[in-house]
Design a protein around this nucleic acid. Sequence first.
DNA 1: ATCGTTTTTGTCCGTATTTACGAAAACGTA
DNA 2: TACGTTTTCGTAAATACGGACAAAAACGAT
Lengths: 139, 139
Amino acid sequence: MALDDDTHRGPGVSLLTGLDMSHITLCPAIAFNKIVGGRYKLHILCVLHRGPLRFGEIGRSLVKGGLGKPITPRILSRELKDMTELGLLDRKEYPVVPKKVEYSLAPRGKALLPILSEIVRWGATGVHEEMLEVPQSRH
Amino acid sequence: MALDDDTHRGPGVSLLTGLDMSHITLCPAIAFNKIVGGRYKLHILCVLHRGPLRFGEIGRSLVKGGLGKPITPRILSRELKDMTELGLLDRKEYPVVPKKVEYSLAPRGKALLPILSEIVRWGATGVHEEMLEVPQSRH
DNA sequence: ATCGTTTTTGTCCGTATTTACGAAAACGTA
DNA sequence: TACGTTTTCGTAAATACGGACAAAAACGAT
């Protein structure tokens, strides 16, 4: 695997963490991308990190700190469904009118919080804002 | 900002890290996505984490641990260029024949290593492989 | 019966990203 | 001269992704 194909510290030991990775097949970085890649998933984990929110609240929370316009209900619904099916979120529906649905972090979602913490720690230095001042070109 | 819009611990203090974020405008999670989003960037940082590699070596390294086929030279070239322009990588060209170009982590790239470490730590539990056993559907 | 609220979904469409293919530069070697 | 190696780039095709819009469910309130 990309992270531990080193010959310096024995087979399957990650240089980054010192952990044994010999039982792992897929590079965690790739998996991370597949799981929380896309435009909104990581941000959704963010806004849920300290408690359940309902559909509309999540949508509104995503605007703050996000660059630009709000997420479409269509997309939000799709993202939440994907994440719930992956086990990242718990979905609780209340039998009231109008309908009320609350989303919260499931264990698999909470397992990502240490990563999020490091991202915030990285962001606290302000590098990310420097890097995005001049948006990068493509092609 | 999404990560510190809480009223429990004073303005601008992240619950996740306890750090003061009052000077930060853009949510680090969003920035992280913009900077190392996409299919290969995070993985490229991975394979470079313990030393410089040249173009072809990176391409071959990406196959190990990646699910599927190798990256095309066209894309690798573009990714490396993007990342170099962002200051994530250093590019060193040797005046030999055939051409030899080595890429290594620049300071801004190294700044992301703690995040990568947490991702590896998360991956060491094997959750990511469980989650991707049945690939998620779209639409 | 009609309206209003909240959440979810179907369908179509445009853009962004990835891929395939080919060509170029730059020089040693056969 | 023709060839091989490594890296980069132009272009067009394919695919993935996000966005717009309308509609549905569910039921209390008017």
